[in-house]
């Protein structure tokens, strides 16, 4: 009871914090928060493959990029496209890419999966460069219109206002994260974890492993697409090196590892830590990535559970200490 009350309190505090952020912070901090949230969702979607299904993808950026380019393209080419349908197109194109590739991807795991995803993201990079009349090639796409959000009976909400866009995006991202979390709690979510543990046994329980993997891939890609789509709206620009460059696939992976593998929420912590780190290093931007990579190496070497494990270690030690303290006091009382 007490635990669930504390949980609700925590959620209320987080929601209140997110709601009041535009009032408390300036534009700079707000953008930082929004950028971090986008990458948190991106990392969460990758984590669905990494922590829950045990698949390491070196090319998750291709789904992020599909979302970003899908949204940018539809807003550029299609006049009067509404905001939500633009995001939908982004997510759908990411799912489409995943489904097209899934017949090849579901057959493999481990190193082969990593290399295959990398190969596909390279192909996508080359394709984007090749179709430069559509995608803008190296220059990317920018300046596409951001339509207002239409809510029936309420009217138009102008997205060019920082605050409105912030509330809108944070709701989309939050909702997506929640849906993903729920996804891991469903019966299908338990199949996901079982595939990670022992795909052969899952097969011999009568579950169709390749089909299940394809669905997981589609869901993961879809949410990466949502993140990419919101990113395109947020930046009002998509560039090939921004969404498909060498670091685009590695950064969310690094976030997952720093935050802590094997948990749902780990990547959020990882993204947070990464963002704070980059901010702290903002006076020396050249060294920021270096420090980031050193943090990753240290985490992999010394703290395989990531930040979450560190937190658990500290709290459990604290609980042990507290219990010791309490028993000592009780003993003392008893003796006296």
């Amino acid at each position: 009871m007490k635990n669930s009350f504390r949980k609700w309190l925590l959620w209320a505090a987080i929601l209140a914090g997110l709601y009041t952020a535009p009032v408390l912070f300036g534009v700079f901090e707000l953008n930082l928060l929004l950028g971090a949230s986008i990458f948190a969702l991106f990392s969460l979607s990758l984590n669905l493959l990494l922590s829950f299904t045990g698949l390491l993808s070196f090319g998750h950026a291709m789904f992020f990029a599909s979302g970003a380019y899908g949204t940018a393209l539809v807003l550029t080419r299609l006049d009067g496209c509404s905001l939500l349908s633009a995001i939908f197109v982004g997510a759908a194109s990411a799912v489409l890419v995943a489904l097209v590739l899934s017949p090849l991807l579901v057959r493999v795991g481990g190193h082969t999966f990593a290399m295959l995803t990398m190969a596909f993201s390279q192909i996508m990079y080359a394709t984007v460069m090749k179709f430069s009349h559509l995608t803008g090639g190296n220059d990317g796409m920018s300046g596409f219109p951001i339509p207002p959000l239409v809510i029936p009976a309420v009217g138009l909400i102008d997205m060019s206002l920082e605050r409105n866009f912030y509330y809108f995006s944070i709701s989309i991202l939050g909702l997506s994260a929640w849906v993903m979390w729920f996804f891991t709690r469903t019966p299908f979510g338990s199949i996901m974890v079982s595939i990670r543990d022992n795909p052969d046994r899952v097969t011999y329980l009568g579950f169709n492993v390749p089909l299940s993997k394809a669905i997981i891939l589609g869901v993961s890609a879809g949410f990466a697409g949502v993140a990419g789509s919101v990113y395109a709206l947020f930046q009002n620009m998509v560039s090939v090196d921004g969404v498909l460059g060498p670091l685009s696939s590695f950064t969310p992976l690094i976030n997952c590892f720093i935050g802590g593998l094997g948990t749902f929420i780990g990547p959020v912590f990882g993204t947070g830590i990464g963002t704070i780190l980059l901010e702290l290093m903002s006076a020396h931007p050249e060294q920021a990535q270096l420090v980031f990579s050193l943090v990753l190496i240290s985490v992999v070497l010394f703290l395989p559970g990531g930040a979450i494990m560190l937190y658990w270690k500290i709290t459990s030690r604290w609980i042990v200490l507290r219990n010791k303290f309490q028993t000592a006091i009780l003993k003392g009382n008893h003796e006296s």
Binding site: F182, R185, T186, P187, F188, S190, L205, S212
Partner: peptide, 22 residues
């Protein structure tokens, strides 16, 4: 959790995305 997978298999609950398993 092991046996729950077995029960899911027996009950033919395979592609259920809308219920919280717990």
């Amino acid at each position: 959790q092991n046996l729950r997978m077995a029960v899911l298999a027996r009950k033919n609950i395979r592609f259920n995305f809308f219920r919280n398993l717990d």
